[in-house]
Amino acid sequence: MTGAGSTRDHLIESTQELLWERGYAATSPRAILDRAGAGQGSMYHHFRGKEDLAAAAMAATAQQLLARAEAALTGEGSAFERLAGYLLRQREVLRGCPVGRMTGDADVLESAVLRRLVATTFDSLRAHVDAVVRAGVRDGEFDSAVDPAELADTVLAVVQGGYVLARAAGDPAPFDRAVRGAVAMLDHLRRKDTV
């Protein structure tokens, strides 16, 4: 490692990995330091403590997740094609959602800072999906009776629920079925005269 910036970055990256693997409660400062290859006082030199470091790591994870979602949702194609692209994109299904998994950690939910990061991430993701659905309704691709906010929450619930089902089964097949089912539902909602 060279310089303070790289130590800070290594601490954040290591914390991102450990949070995804273990969750917040099961991630100790010692595990973070060991994973980062950092010295004893490094964490407290760069962060006020574990919660502050976890917040920085969760913010970085959220930014990465939102960037991947935006790439699918703001790309070329119809609203249906963009939503289908988001649902069907490659994911590490059996690892679960690195943000969604935090909702199962009581310590995250008890922390106003960490809970707000999770909620804000899903609010941003919901807004991106909602905007695509609204464009589809506006352009006549989806029927005007479609409620963009409801459909956006449905899309997010399918993805997050698919992760849970796949992890419980130890098999990505339930996730794959869920997202394919959601794509079929979206196809059913399309106005057939625009297909």
Rank of each mutant, 00 (worst) to 15 (best):
Ala72Met: 13
Gly96Leu: 04
Ala38Asn: 11
Arg82Tyr: 09
Glu21Val: 07
Leu94Phe: 11
Ala25Pro: 11
Pro98Glu: 05
Thr74Cys: 04
Arg48Met: 00
Ala59Thr: 15
Asp107Thr: 05
Leu33Phe: 09
Ala72Lys: 14
Gly104Pro: 08
Tyr44Phe: 15
Ala72Ile: 02
Ser28Glu: 00
Ala55Leu: 07
Leu66Cys: 12
Ala36Lys: 02
His46Gly: 09
Ala36Glu: 02
Met43His: 08
Gly49Gln: 12
Ala84Lys: 13
Arg22Glu: 00
Leu53Gln: 04
Arg95Cys: 03
Gly75Ala: 04
Leu109Arg: 14
Leu66Ala: 13
Arg48Gln: 02
Ala25Asp: 09
Phe47Gln: 03
Ala84Cys: 12
Ser78Pro: 08
Ala71His: 14
Gly23Tyr: 00
Gly23Ser: 01
Gln63Tyr: 08
Arg101Tyr: 02
Ala38Trp: 05
Ala57Arg: 08
Ala60Arg: 06
Ala69Gly: 15
Gln63Ser: 14
Asp52Cys: 03
His45Val: 02
Gly100Thr: 09
Thr103Leu: 15
Gly41Gln: 10
Val99Thr: 03
Ala31Gly: 03
Ala38Leu: 05
Ala31Thr: 01
Asp52Trp: 01
Ala72Tyr: 07
Ala38Met: 12
Lys50Gly: 03
Val99Cys: 14
Cys97Lys: 06
Ser111Asn: 06
Val113Gln: 14
Val108Arg: 13
Gly104Leu: 08
Gly104Asn: 06
Val113Ala: 15
Ala25Phe: 10
Val108Asn: 09
His46Ile: 15
Leu94Arg: 11
Ala26Gln: 03
Gly77Gln: 09
Ala36Asn: 01
Glu81Gln: 14
Ala59Glu: 10
Ser111Ala: 06
Val93Glu: 00
Ala38Pro: 11
Glu110Pro: 14
Ser78Gln: 05
Asp107Met: 13
Gly23Arg: 02
Glu92Met: 15
Val99His: 05
Glu70Val: 04
Ser42Thr: 05
Arg101Trp: 12
Pro98Trp: 07
Leu83Glu: 00
Val108Trp: 12
Leu109Glu: 13
Phe47Thr: 01
Leu33Ser: 09
Ala72Phe: 10
Arg91Thr: 12
Ala69Arg: 14
Val113Met: 13
Leu87Cys: 09
Asp105Asn: 04
Leu53Pro: 00
Leu94Ile: 02
Gly39Trp: 11
Lys50Cys: 08
His46Glu: 15
Ala84Glu: 12
Leu83Gln: 12
Arg89Ser: 11
Ala60Phe: 01
His45Gly: 06
Ala55His: 11
Glu70Ala: 05
Ala25Arg: 15
Thr74Ser: 15
Tyr24Gly: 05
Ala57Met: 03
Asp107Tyr: 06
Ala25His: 12
Met43Pro: 04
Asp34Trp: 07
Lys50Phe: 02
Ala67Glu: 10
Ala31Glu: 05
Ala38Tyr: 03
Thr74Pro: 01
Tyr86Arg: 09
Lys50Tyr: 02
Leu33Met: 07
Leu66Thr: 10
Gly77Asn: 10
Met43Arg: 11
Tyr44Asp: 10
Ala71Glu: 09
Cys97Ser: 14
Ala62Asp: 09
Ser28Pro: 02
Arg82Gly: 06
Gly49Tyr: 04
Gln90Asp: 07
Phe47Lys: 05
Ala25Gly: 08
Glu81Asn: 08
Gly49Pro: 05
Gln90Phe: 07
Pro29Glu: 09
Leu66Arg: 09
Arg48Thr: 04
Ala38Ile: 03
Leu53Glu: 08
